[in-house]
């Protein structure tokens, strides 16, 4: 991209993609903003053709003042945070294990990646019915085996259960990215540290972790984007009950269960704001790893 001609050619060639992307993102965003200032209850007879009533910030005020709002924000943050902590920690451990030469490495790696290919709805159903069912789930049998009272996971420990399910899905992604990062670590660095008298733990802390910081940053950023909008896992398991209602789920309920498009759109705008706040925080904390 050195000359003027090649630069303008590059711009021309990128233009369709940029315009498509902009349209793709801008149109839904503008529509959401538009609806959020309108009263739009299709079941009460509000129609686009009849013109929608402008209500100013009423939807926004109602959405925040609803008793469900703050708990849903907290729930969202707990799920995102919990899944991030579990996937990053276990991901680092698994990546280090998979990096060791062992028998059947190829098959083990494929098995580790497998959960990523299972659709969220399916994996949530499997977890719900196969593992977490209070009567016939594998966990209940395990509990009974040790003489303990089975837990009805999804109602008594709904958040940890959902975090577990979502972590199971995202662990392969984290492991895969971290594994490639670990494999790119120069083994001579570890040997140098070994000669310098660093214990295995010190080698991990001083050499491996700093080397992984960039990959961890990427894992956290990408996962956060997707985890903020976790939906299927909640829909299939608890249906938003037992304190597992996230902001996304709340918006879904407002729009589809209460058929209040305006209110849901206002919630959507709040979700955008929440995502941006989280993103700014993350960038502040971990983003500087990307520069160096």
């Amino acid at each position: 991209m050195a000359t003027k001609a090649s630069r303008s050619a590059a711009r021309m060639m990128m233009a369709p993609a940029v315009i498509l992307l902009l349209g793709w993102m801008l149109i839904p965003l503008v529509l959401t903003l538009f609806f959020s200032f309108k009263k739009f209850l299709p079941l009460r007879g509000d129609r686009w053709e009849n013109g929608l009533e402008w209500v100013g910030f009423e939807n926004y005020v109602r959405f925040v003042s609803s008793s469900a709002f703050w708990p849903s924000v907290i729930t969202t943050l707990i799920i995102v945070g919990g899944v991030l902590v579990i996937t990053v920690c276990l991901g680092i451990l698994l990546a280090m294990l998979l990096d060791q030469p062992m028998w059947g490495q190829g098959i083990v790696r494929i098995l580790v990646i497998a959960p990523f290919f299972v659709m969220p709805t399916v994996s949530a159903l499997v977890w719900k019915n196969m593992f977490m069912d209070a009567n016939n789930g594998l966990f209940s049998h395990l509990w009974r085996l040790f003489g303990a009272e089975p837990v009805s996971w999804l109602s008594e420990a709904s958040l940890p259960s959902i975090i577990l399910i979502v972590s199971w899905q995202w662990l392969p992604f984290a492991t895969l990215i971290l594994l490639t990062a670990i494999q790119s670590l120069d083994s001579e660095q570890l040997e140098a540290a070994e000669m310098d008298g660093a214990s295995p733990l010190a080698r991990f802390g001083h050499i491996v972790l700093p080397h992984l910081s960039r990959a961890v940053t990427i894992v956290i950023l990408i996962q956060t984007i997707f985890l903020l909008s976790v939906f299927a896992e909640i829909f299939v398991t608890t249906g938003g009950a037992f304190g597992s209602r996230t902001l996304t789920y709340l918006i879904f309920q407002r729009v589809l269960e209460s058929q209040n498009v305006g209110l849901g759109s206002a919630g959507g705008v709040y979700a955008i704001i929440l995502a941006n706040i989280v993103a700014i925080f993350l960038m502040r904390i971990v983003g500087k790893n990307l520069d160096t």
């Binding site: 120069d186 001579e188 660095q189 140098a192 000669m195 050499i207 700093p210 080397h211 910081s213």
Partner: peptide
């Protein structure tokens, strides 16, 4: 003490 071919300095 060893000096490696790749230097093996700690980059961070």
């Amino acid at each position: 003490a060893m000096v490696f071919q790749s230097y093996a300095l700690y980059p961070h």
